[in-house]
Design a protein around this nucleic acid. Structure first.
Lengths: 238, 238
DNA sequence: GGATGTGAAGTAGTTCACAGCC
DNA sequence: GGCTGTGAACTACTTCACATCC
């Protein structure tokens, strides 16, 4: 059942959202020269149970070493494989307000295969200026082919911008506008909404529930499913 | 079973993460003068099934009108109640880089009870400058009492900053640093990680799975649980 | 010994289908 | 007629517990 080469088995949504976390931990351990990590350590650092870690990783094929855990470089590789990091993909960022600017300048955002190919805005005062090494293009002009569009436009503009980009062949949208949008079949949308995150956090503070309680907790943001009541410690101290 | 006054029943995590979405829709309909909305409409707009909407709202008490749906203003009110929007809470933002700046200047971020009381940084070049009406304070100086801290610091600094703030009585953290942190018992952490969101999105693009497929989809970001294969349309056109 | 990988059990959340009410 | 609210069925995910292998 464990195909030596990359397994095409369908991964569950919660698993998918945890893989990037494991990956980051693996990379960090690799950088500091550790050779292997076991499911308990990985679980503490990621904020999930060891069993969950093992199930998640078993879904990528059996590459753990009984008795000693997972080789960190194999771990990193397998996850990269599963997540499709071998292939590069082109990203455009639309809307160069504070947020758009913050994203393209962030060293953490466009990594692992993501390649920024263009930045758009519709404000004439912004078009033509340089942001993170790219000249801001006119959104009403021609759109360069890309796979993903990151939407940092006002909520009222989100739908029309998405329509436009979908027409130009963009297949996936990371939407930072607090606005549900509709896209053609075959396109994917993923939402990031700060104020909702804050509201969820406050619910827990007010109710002393979930993520609080028995000790340290980790509500994994996206992987909101019950990853609580788990001890975790930090890594990458310096 | 339907207590007339605010129900203290424990809400499930997925429900909690959907309530803010319903709320936004309710507010939008209210602004445009609509009086009621039914579970099918609400479900389409939020990207979930009508049944899920009804279950979620039933958990807040039975206030739907059989035959005609939910009164939008009651809907908004009930959700605000459940989420604890009656009480105000104080927020500090730590780290005034591009992201911190974008957040405090965003009209969407600090709403519904959230009140920005201070902004901190440790860079002498930034301390003393004004951001969104607040003079940036020295993080090493005294910290004003607050409930929530929004961390926009580099990953390497996240843990020590959290330690410091937890010591000063902060009880909840919204952590934008791509770094798992540990906090004392009784504190809550919620993570927002852009690059992970992008990686999850790309997994779906590469695999044509989940959120893609049968039509328009809505992977609710935080409410990542299987809210797919649902039709949705946009609202708040202009 | 020690940790993985996994059937089996348990739990949580969603969806079905319909009784009940407006 | 139409739509809510909810028991019952179903599905998905997690956790337990242990056989298996290094």
């Amino acid at each position: 059942m464990a195909n030596p080469r990359l397994i095409k088995r369908q991964l569950s949504e919660p698993t998918i959202s945890r893989l990037p976390v494991y990956q980051r931990i693996a990379e960090s351990w690799e950088r500091r020269g550790r050779l292997s990590i076991d499911s308990t350590q990985l679980g503490e650092l990621a904020g999930v149970t060891p069993t969950t870690v093992r199930r998640d990783l078993a879904a990528l094929g059996s590459f753990g070493m009984r008795g000693s855990g997972y080789d960190v470089s194999v771990l990193r590789e397998r996850i990269a494989d599963a997540l499709g990091h071998d292939r590069e993909y082109d990203v455009v960022v639309v809307g160069v307000g504070n947020l758009g600017r913050a994203l393209v300048n962030s060293s953490n955002f466009l990594t692992r295969g993501a390649k920024l190919v263009a930045v758009y805005d519709k404000d004439p005062n912004v078009i033509g200026t340089e942001v993170a090494g790219h000249i801001v293009q006119d959104l009403n002009g021609s759109i360069i082919p890309a796979t993903v569009a990151v939407l940092c436009v006002p909520p009222a503009a989100a739908q029309s911008v998405a329509d436009r980009l979908a027409g130009e062949g963009i297949r996936a949208f990371l939407n930072f506008a607090p606005q549900v949008i509709s896209v053609p079949p075959g396109c994917a949308v993923h939402y990031v909404d700060f104020s909702i995150e804050l509201q969820i956090l406050m619910y827990h503070v007010n109710n002393g529930t979930g993520p609080l309680g028995g000790g340290v907790l980790h509500s994994l943001g996206i992987a909101a499913n019950s990853a609580r009541r788990n001890i975790q410690r930090n890594l990458e101290k310096s």
